[in-house]
């Protein structure tokens, strides 16, 4: 089958290759399918419609229902005359239940008296104004304490540290005169003074008693290969 000329021209403009492809699709279907489709759809529609109503009533049932009931009410069977008076017929607005005499007249009074009784049983105790004020102060103090602690913990203190880092200690010491350094050392407590001669000499005492061979032997035994002197030094 030839393709519509406009559509063919459009295709050739886009792609001559696709314009040369077959214009018929390769799918197939049984020829009998077309004869059965309409019947299949009609059956589906009937099923759908039938599915909406499960039960059916006899023809004319609803149109005659009101008349049937009325005729039964107006021409009541004499046999039913002995039935209780409060038996209610369909559609009647009379309630079959009864309430004690004077119930509604007394209802509002009984509710009011119950409310009053309840109020007397559970009096509401007010807190004294002074105690309430103190509690408010205590709460404010607690909040203030939390805020101060938070500010201390979370404030960045790195500024003071950086100012210390920038101090040029060795430069400042170099600018001092010898007399100033000496007077500063003399003014400091004894605990800051260098190690005394007597104390340091005690450390050398065992070495004095050792021969040179013993010292050499000790050094060889405890020699760490990683500490070998670098050549040329």
């Amino acid at each position: 089958m030839d393709r519509n000329i406009d559509i063919q021209n459009e295709l050739e403009e886009i792609s001559a290759f696709v314009a040369g492809l077959p214009s018929q699709h390769p799918y197939q279907v049984d020829a009998s399918y077309w004869d059965t489709l309409a019947a299949g759809v009609a059956a589906q529609i009937h099923l759908q419609t039938a599915g909406n109503v499960t039960y059916s009533a006899p023809p004319g049932y609803f149109s005659n229902l009101a008349e049937t009931i009325l005729s039964r009410v107006t021409h009541a069977d004499p046999a039913s005359a002995n039935e209780p008076e409060h038996l209610v017929l369909p559609g009647s607005s009379i309630m079959p239940y009864e309430v004690p005499a004077q119930y509604f007249e007394q209802l509002s009074n009984s509710i009011t008296s119950r409310i009053t009784r309840q109020a007397q049983q559970a009096p509401v105790v007010q807190m004294k104004p002074k105690i309430r004020q103190m509690a408010a102060y205590a709460a404010a103090a607690a909040v203030a304490a939390i805020m101060v602690a938070g500010a201390f913990l979370f404030t960045d203190n790195s500024e003071s540290y950086s100012s210390l880092k920038d101090l040029d200690v060795s430069g400042s010491v170099a600018r001092l005169s010898e007399a100033e350094i000496e007077s500063y050392l003399n003014s400091q407590p004894a605990s800051l003074s260098p190690v005394k001669e007597e104390e340091s000499s005690d450390m050398q005492a065992p070495l004095r008693n050792m021969s040179e061979d013993e010292i050499q032997q000790y050094l060889q035994e405890n020699n760490d290969p990683a500490e070998q002197p670098v050549k040329g030094i």
Partner: peptide
């Protein structure tokens, strides 16, 4: 899977 499928035919390649 179509029972008429033929990989060599252009109409099937087009599909």
């Amino acid at each position: 899977a179509d029972k008429h499928f033929d990989a060599n035919k252009l109409e099937w390649k087009l599909q």
